[in-house]
Design a protein around this nucleic acid. Sequence first.
DNA 1: CTGAAAGCGCTAACAA
DNA 2: TTGTTAGCGCTTTCAG
Lengths: 338, 338
Amino acid sequence: MSDPRRPLTLRDVSEASGVSEMTVSRVLRNRGDVSVATRERVLEAAKALGYVPNKIAGALASQRVNLVGVVIPSLSNMVFPEVLTSISAVLEDTGLQPVFGVSNYQPEREEAVIYEMLSWRPSGIIVAGLEHTDSARAMLENAGVPVVEIMDTDGSPVDSAVGISHERAGREMAKAIIAAGYRKIGFMGTRMPNDHRARKRLDGFRAVLAEAGIGLADSEFYEGGSALAKGREMTEAMLTRSPDLDFLYYSNDMIGAGGLLYCLDKGIDVPGRIGLAGFNNVDLLDGLPVRLATMDACRAEIGRQAAMIVAGRHPEGLIGGEVVTLTPKLEPGGTIRQ
Amino acid sequence: MSDPRRPLTLRDVSEASGVSEMTVSRVLRNRGDVSVATRERVLEAAKALGYVPNKIAGALASQRVNLVGVVIPSLSNMVFPEVLTSISAVLEDTGLQPVFGVSNYQPEREEAVIYEMLSWRPSGIIVAGLEHTDSARAMLENAGVPVVEIMDTDGSPVDSAVGISHERAGREMAKAIIAAGYRKIGFMGTRMPNDHRARKRLDGFRAVLAEAGIGLADSEFYEGGSALAKGREMTEAMLTRSPDLDFLYYSNDMIGAGGLLYCLDKGIDVPGRIGLAGFNNVDLLDGLPVRLATMDACRAEIGRQAAMIVAGRHPEGLIGGEVVTLTPKLEPGGTIRQ
DNA sequence: CTGAAAGCGCTAACAA
DNA sequence: TTGTTAGCGCTTTCAG
């Protein structure tokens, strides 16, 4: 050994086992026929040396990369880790490996992440949302690999899409609330110009209210901090300044849960005096004293289907263009009058 | 164009701009001196074509990869996404790119993830915990790049480590509880043989109790499901079968929060009749009606320092071996008697 | 079943 | 400032 810290190569294994590099390569990839004796000799040598194949070289030579890029806006949202988990689970059996990137809800950052990912020539890309910079969209269109946009289907996908209509989710919730007899409705959500899905839900929600001849009686937006605490604070503030509200619609379950805990604390009659609803159907809700009304965002199913689309596509014979629109289910819980 | 879907290469940009491949490469990497005129011509051509450099080829040629592998046990734990976020934030300015992998608390799975990562020859590896399969440990030792083990420092790191002593965290909590006068103590946690950190905390906790001549009066372990709901259920069950308990120690804040909500619900006097404590100091606690006693796991700081160690190391001049032990802070909240 | 030759797309090193 | 030449470590292809 000239330099003990030089990374090992196929050649080292070849020399150690007295077999050609080519045959070593075949053994290590389980490709082609190799005699049992040779195979064992090679495996033994590779293990003894602690050889780890160099996928960079392998990928360059074979023009094949077992990576799937996954771009999401945030990790702290609790929603995305769940999608990632279901993507991982599906890809596990396919030999594909997910690689995650986070855009922090910034379009330019997303563009940079997509560029970086494409430069590794992945087998596919999964990206949250349909809104991208022109440049990012162009890159995705020209990538020559399956592109699946997830979470949302209100818009024009680059290629395939799996998600729900957030506009419709907002509409359905508004309908249910009105049907239950609530009329003075307040809204709380994040102040994030680039959270298009939250915006679409609010748009749909407002549209139905407008059709019913009522408007949002109050609304408030927050940023940063603990969502549960924010929900509590905002609810207190809103009920103080608009005491006649009879319903609070939250853009996510965490702030909704905060609001619910506040109301229970104060002994406010829920859902009699006031109703509450969130969005996402996160696990957390199971542990609350009263179940918050919510709408399931189908996160696990979205991840599953997106991964299957990416995995199922052969590099050749690209068809693409599937759009899967899942239907979110309203979970009335115990915070909407029956 | 022969095949419109053939990925573009440097050669395409070279031909389109009338400049050699080498010069194009220099422009695209901002390396070496290139005249302004040439540079602009190249940039224009690259942009017009929509060229995305092939990092696989680049990495093979330069023997340099700007990737840092990050291996964590779980994404659903709420703790790890936060560590990832702080790692990302630090690496952002260094030109390094984190690549995440999840082991699901399975040693063999972790070994596979590490193997896969090393096969891409990353610039460094960050891995949660000090316990690995022999084979994984050997791979990390021979990787020839900085390896930082995070979260825990109770053990022998492969190279560097940044974390807290969970054994000590358990001890400190036990001391505080005993000092507050509690004597009949129950414990609840996850049933995960491979969650070494939770185990170490419990070990330390028990050791102090033993020194004080008291044992755990009751304990229960769960798996799966919503942690908040599990905390609620387990607490109800435990208080029913052991009504004389005066303290409940939870292995994480989520189940602790569930237990706290249960107690508040039932009108149990906290912390008078019974005290409660969790671990991690998650954001969520801010929104609870009463703040749960907990201990900060220093997640953000751990991620920050680990990323800095990986980033600060030059491939040559590897020193390694830093061990940073942070000191978790006890947050008494409102669930331990003063 | 095994091996030799030719390159994958890029960059280090050197030359002009 | 620009270009040329040789690989990086592997796999494809073709020949034994």
